[in-house]
Design a protein around this nucleic acid. Structure first.
Lengths: 129, 129
DNA sequence: CTTGCCTCTGACGTCAACGTCAGGTTCTAG
DNA sequence: CTAGAACCTGACGTTGACGTCAGAGGCAAG
């Protein structure tokens, strides 16, 4: 398929796909006229890339680990790298949970105050730009 | 305390503290000569700011919500905002968990392959810069 | 008083993951 | 055949949270 269809089916922009290629995350055949042609498997690949971005990995890191992720093969060094990234993700999850809990306690407190009529009287002033 | 001490005690840079002030996240008294003076409570405040950054909130958002977070009071609109941010954080946690699970399955697969002697034979090529 | 660290403002630099625009080619529907 | 959509490369713009540098003033010790 061509780049526009891949973009449509994955929900990422054409620009992003070209960027992925630039970063060696996603290869493409070329038609005689130079247009990119992707196989069906590219859809899954792009989804995977998005997942890894969502995990907070950089494109540099993804490029290093993708071959391993795709074919399930790796050197011990790559496996260590993967494990380290996994730990990173775990820590980020923990941090986020703490932050969420913090927001939760703030929320319940604020809501309770609202109900007891203790709401702020100064309106939120529109901040200068 | 002065800015250097606050930086040391919170682990954030002096530059970051000045940036927080610029973004209305952290106020400071000034000595007659113009140097910033912070109360003890600034330490907690900076820690809180870090937590909210960790939650993925922007400084703009933090500035809007901080008064509410600090004194537990808010307008209904602010409470809605908080709840929305909380949901955002929740979604991010879910995404991260998916990504982590993905990394996990890759890891176990790769490790199993390693043990069965199916490791990649082409070494990880050092990528061009 | 001077040395050396701390602090100030102002301003430009950085980095990642794209967005956007220009100027040109290619493909496809009619 | 032609209009218009889709594609190409190349290059500059954007955003957020700072880093870094310059040039100047402040503060404690000896």
């Amino acid at each position: 398929m061509r780049i526009g269809e891949l973009a449509g089916r994955t929900g990422v922009s054409v620009r992003a796909l070209r960027y992925y290629e630039e970063q060696d995350l996603l290869a493409a055949e070329r038609s005689p006229s130079g247009q990119r042609r992707y196989p069906e498997s590219a859809v899954d690949r792009v989804v995977l890339i998005q997942q890894l971005y969502a995990a907070g990995l950089s494109s540099r890191t993804i490029a290093e680990l993708l071959p391993c992720v795709v074919d399930g093969r790796a050197t011990p060094a790559l496996i260590e790298r993967l494990a380290a990234e996994r730990e990173q993700v775990d820590r980020r999850i923990t941090d986020l949970r703490h932050a969420r809990d913090r927001l939760d306690s703030v929320l319940t407190a604020a809501t309770a105050n609202l109900r007891t009529g203790a709401a702020c009287r100064r309106e939120a002033a529109p901040r200068a730009r």
